[in-house]
Design a binder for these strands. Structure first.
Length: 244
DNA sequence: AGTAGTGTTCGGCC
DNA sequence: TGGCCGAACACTAC
């Protein structure tokens, strides 16, 4: 569920409830005053990176699925929903997710140009942010939501392989053309992810993530937990150059 | 059938 | 102060 493209899929799947009035609203979230949203109309569904946003005239509900969150449309799960909306044309339920109420205008909360899937995405700003973090390891930089909102661990591994950059490379030592390729592919792979996920073929397109051999050299891939983020990292020592 | 992970926040410690 | 680390959260595919 969690990476940016999956949130875009969710946003598209719930459009049937856009501009609909909430007939009933319940759940086990402690963050939400359910009465404050009952009878209100959903003005829009939006997203920023891995954040899913349900907009109302007076406030926005921010949903983050973390590792285990899920949702159902016109279906029920056994587990109690964190949030459950009933509309005239169906129900929308969220499970095991983090929920927050946002009352500040969204443009003040979110820098839309940092979201790799947003039309406002600004590659130049991403390059500037990377240059300002010159001692950071690239494996950590790709997971930094202030730079690449929406990028998760799968996208990280695949983008590093595509661009031939070793995960332990230091951002400040990566040549500018390579850095530009990295920023470019963070977006390109995210949209590939979206396309493949919709077609239920995402996993079969993975080149290194969860894999044990390099698709080019047929030699063993490395699997480590590097950097500050210590997330599972798959890479090929022959294909991916170390800049340090 | 047990394990590990598409993620983030928080509190404690040094 | 601030960086680092582990725990917590809570589900399910492999």
């Amino acid at each position: 569920m969690p990476e940016g493209p999956s949130i875009v899929i969710l946003k598209e799947a719930v459009q049937q409830f856009s501009n609909r009035k909430v007939l009933a609203f319940s759940g086990n979230s402690k963050q939400v005053d359910f009465g404050a949203f009952t009878g209100k109309k959903v003005t829009a569904f939006a997203s920023w990176g891995k954040h899913f946003l349900i907009c109302f005239p007076h406030a926005t509900l921010r949903i983050h699925f973390m590792l285990f969150g899920s949702y159902r449309i016109n279906e029920e799960k056994e587990t109690p929903p964190r949030l459950q909306f009933r509309f005239t044309n169906g129900t929308l339920s969220f499970y095991a997710c983090s929920v927050k109420v946002i009352t500040t205008p969204l443009d003040e909360v979110y820098d839309w140009s940092a979201d790799v899937m947003n039309p406002a995405w600004d590659a130049g700003k991403a390059i500037k942010k990377l240059k300002a973090r010159d001692t950071m390891l690239v494996c950590d930089a790709l997971l930094d939501q202030d730079i690449f909102a929406g990028v998760g661990n799968i996208i990280k591994n695949e983008v590093l392989y595509r661009t031939g950059i070793h995960p332990l490379s230091t951002v400040g030592h990566i040549p500018l053309p390579k850095l530009k390729a990295l920023v470019k592919q963070a977006v390109v792979y995210s949209f590939d992810f979206l396309k493949w996920k919709k077609a239920f073929t995402l996993k079969q397109h993975w080149q290194v993530h969860t894999k044990s051999t390099c698709p080019v050299h047929h030699t063993a891939l490395k699997k480590t937990y590097p950097g500050k983020t210590k997330r599972r990292t798959f890479y090929c020592e022959q294909c991916q150059e170390l800049y340090s």
